[in-house]
Nucleic acid binder design. Structure first.
Length: 566
RNA sequence: ACCCCCGUAGCUCAGUUGGAUAGAGCAUCGGAUUUCUAAUCCGGCGGUCGCAGGUUCAAGUCCUGCCGGGGGUGCCA
């Protein structure tokens, strides 16, 4: 990696400046006229050492040598521009193509992380608001696994909250058993919505709901049986959706899993003097950390989600001793996790704890919620996506058998929905529109899937027309501007994967893949390969093949499938 | 009231953590197919990066203040 090399060169040339070099980076240039990569560290260093930046950059450029680098030039106020060596680049393409991991290292080898994502609430339908945690979390899961991490993905279901008091109360007073049979989740949702509404208007009803919750948490057999039934019904629906989304978890441990530890957590906190009684509740005060107080037991005796999350962290540390625990949730939980992490540390937890939050999804007319009943169900979104994709497939490939068309429509439709979420900065707010969610052209999954399918087609045509040709016998040579640009981009795959994982932003990989596909499409359009002379032909087909391998692997890391024909 | 995000082309968004002339897609206008998949490619149009200061060789990016939007702030999760 060029950054390491540059950092080493700087350190050797300027031993007096060790500290400031840790974040030194080599990055791609703003424009091809500046070479392939650039390093801007000389200018910052010059300030600290009170030296002339151009002279300083010149000293680096004069001594630095690397097998992959053809040329180093100092430009402007002190940029060091780096141009890769064509022969090295060609050989590197061959190395990548020969490696199933495409020369991506395994920095996570021997390390363990727990990834907590998706985590829908039981007895409510999964709606479009759940897709972000599920899709972003799953991409982070795949990225880290690929980098060698032992990832333990955990679906921390919301199966133990106050909502169960509301639902149990509603169920006992007005369940429609027939509806529960045919549309279980819809019926549970209806019960919840109506019981919630009544609890807002009728204090007695609200109190009864609380009592039901307390009974459930105390182990009342009737309520426990109802609760189990709700969980099973919900898991049936969730599993169906996860299967469609190609999402799998190592564990599905809901909040209820930690129930028997909650009292212990509160006990630990109080005996350590970290929490005390206040207005009937048990509260951890975090004034030193400038955080609001954190409730760990309500005045009615029930525990709340902070308690559960603290217990969960303790259990995970005891059982798996991970290097870090990562939570993927929406932005509203930022304060909650700050509090939970702080309290956990006070209890002696040393594990790195990260909260990866993403912006809330909204409808153009405002927020939606189960309580309001204005949600768009996730299944409906997936249905719409597939049917829209199917219409396009039928139009574009009428000769394709119907079952193949359906298969393509699935990959394209689901891929488009996932990509729409993964391709933008997770932290920006998303306003849901059907048009955006179902886009099939431009910067979208189908664009990448299309590029991949064309590559597969080229490879098949090549095998058909030149059956005796041995690709591996021909070196990859980069002669055309378009193919060189493609190769430079291809060489950056490992960096893109590592950067996306380390910053918890799958969008960085999505951006990379889109750039790669754009360069490929341009190459495809402007440079002949099956019709090129022998030697060039094989070289270009090999470069095609490598591009295809990167697209396939990269998309799979985002949880998006590829088809040989679309 | 306080805290956290966001504000970039008509619309939706990137912008590699301070770098060179701010980039894509959609929309719009024009061009490319006897050829390896036109779900494509090539080009045009489109910008006081919310506003005002500040920090320095360099600010969309950092600091301060304001404006606008979203979210949060002990008994929901």
């Amino acid at each position: 990696m060029l950054s390491d090399w540059m950092r080493k060169t700087f350190a050797e040339e300027f031993p007096e400046a060790q500290e400031g070099l840790a974040d030194l980076r080599v990055m791609t240039t703003a424009s091809p006229e500046f070479g392939d990569y650039q390093c801007n560290a000389a200018m910052g260093l010059a300030r600290r050492l009170k030296q002339n930046p151009r002279q300083l950059a010149g000293r680096i450029a004069g001594r630095a040598r690397h097998e992959s680098v053809a040329r180093l030039e100092v430009a402007g106020p002190g940029f060091i521009n780096i141009t890769l060596d064509d022969a090295w680049l060609g050989a590197h393409m061959e190395r990548m193509a020969a490696d199933p991991d495409l020369c991506v290292p395994k920095p996570g080898s021997g390390r363990t992380m727990i990834l907590d994502y998706s985590s829908p609430n039981v007895a409510k339908p999964m709606h479009i608001g759940h897709i972000r945690s599920t899709v972003i979390g799953n991409a982070l899961d795949r990225l880290h696994r690929f980098l060698g991490w032992r990832v333990i993905s955990d679906n921390h279901l919301g199966d133990w909250g106050t909502q169960f008091g509301i639902i149990i109360m509603g169920f006992k007073k007005g369940v429609d058993l027939k509806a529960l049979e045919s549309e279980p989740i819809d019926e549970l949702e209806r019960i919840y919505r109506e019981s919630y509404k009544r609890s807002q208007e009728d204090p007695e009803w609200l109190d009864a709901c609380r009592q039901e919750l307390v009974r459930l948490q105390a182990g009342d057999p009737e309520n426990l049986a109802l609760w189990k039934r709700f969980v099973d019904l919900s898991m049936g629906e969730f599993s169906r959706i996860y299967k469609r989304l190609d999402v799998a978890f190592d564990m599905v441990r809901g909040e209820s899993f930690y129930n028997d530890r909650l009292a212990g957590v509160v006990e630990q906190l109080t005996s350590a003097g970290l929490a005390r009684e206040s207005e009937g509740a048990i509260v951890a005060f975090l004034d030193d950390e400038k955080l609001p107080p954190c409730l760990v037991r309500k005045s009615d005796g029930a525990f709340n989600y902070a308690t559960t999350d603290i217990a969960t962290i303790q259990r995970r540390v005891e059982e798996f001793n991970p290097e870090l625990i990562v939570y993927v949730t929406d932005e509203r939980q930022q304060l909650h996790f700050k509090q939970v992490f702080t309290v956990s540390r006070k209890l002696g937890v040393k594990t790195r704890l990260d909260h990866v939050w993403f912006g809330l999804m909204r409808l153009p007319e405002g927020t939606f919620s189960t309580r309001e009943g204005n949600v768009i169900k996730l299944e409906r979104l997936l249905d719409e996506a597939e049917s829209k994709a199917l219409a396009v497939v039928r139009e574009a490939s009428p000769e394709m058998p119907a079952d193949r068309q359906a298969e393509v429509a699935r990959a394209v439709g689901i891929g488009a929905v996932k990509y729409a979420d993964l391709s933008q900065n997770p932290q920006s707010l998303v306003v849901f529109t059907w048009e955006k969610a179902l886009a099939l052209n431009g910067n979208s999954a189908p664009y990448l899937q299309y590029a991949y399918a064309r590559i597969r087609s080229v490879q098949d045509k090549f095998a058909e027309r030149f059956p005796s040709s041995d690709l591996a016998a021909h070196p990859i040579r980069l002669t055309e501007k378009h193919e060189r640009a493609l190769a430079v981009k291809a060489a950056g795959f490992a960096d893109a994967v590592m950067l996306a994982a380390a910053s918890f932003k799958p969008s960085m990989l999505a951006d990379y893949l889109y750039d790669l596909a754009v360069l490929y499409s341009s190459f495809y359009q402007n440079v002949p390969f099956l019709k090129a002379d022998a030697g060039f032909r094989e070289s270009r087909v090999r470069l095609c093949g490598l591009t295809g391998a990167i697209l396939r692997k990269g998309l799979s890391l985002l949880g998006i499938g590829t088809m040989d024909r679309i």
